[in-house]
Amino acid sequence: MQNYWNETEAAQISSDLDMRVYTSRLLGKDMNLVMHGGGNTSVKSQVNGEDILYVKGSGWDLETIEPAGFAPVKLDALLKM
């Protein structure tokens, strides 16, 4: 397995969601790890004092995913379910 991590690129990332986009794309580059369009990644973050879980949406390819490909869910509401 090739390591695609780039310390310089990673150091420029400032948010949890952007880091998850970056790492998801790295995973998506290796077809031995994910099938085209497949795979799931998520990240918990705080936005305006609220815990948010960003979950990769269906139909997004890990190799090319954008921040809009992650659905934000309020963690408190999710835990109540």
Rank of each mutant, 00 (worst) to 15 (best):
Q2P: 10
N3A: 03
Y4T: 02
Y4M: 03
Y4F: 15
N6V: 13
E7S: 08
T8I: 13
A11P: 01
Q12V: 04
I13V: 15
S14G: 06
S14H: 14
D16V: 09
M19D: 07
M19C: 05
V21D: 08
L26S: 00
L26G: 01
K29Y: 00
M31N: 10
M31Y: 13
N32E: 13
L33E: 07
L33D: 02
V34K: 13
V34H: 08
G37R: 02
G38Q: 09
G39S: 05
T41H: 09
S42T: 13
S42D: 07
S42V: 10
V43A: 11
Q46T: 14
V47Y: 07
N48D: 15
N48C: 07
G49T: 02
G49Y: 12
E50T: 13
L53H: 11
W60I: 01
D61R: 03
D61G: 04
D61S: 05
L62R: 11
E63H: 11
T64S: 06
I65Q: 06
I65D: 00
I65P: 01
E66N: 13
E66M: 08
P67T: 09
P67D: 08
A68F: 00
G69L: 04
G69Q: 07
G69N: 04
F70I: 03
P72G: 06
L75N: 07
D76W: 12
D76C: 06
A77N: 09
A77K: 08
L78M: 09
L78V: 03
L79D: 03
K80V: 11
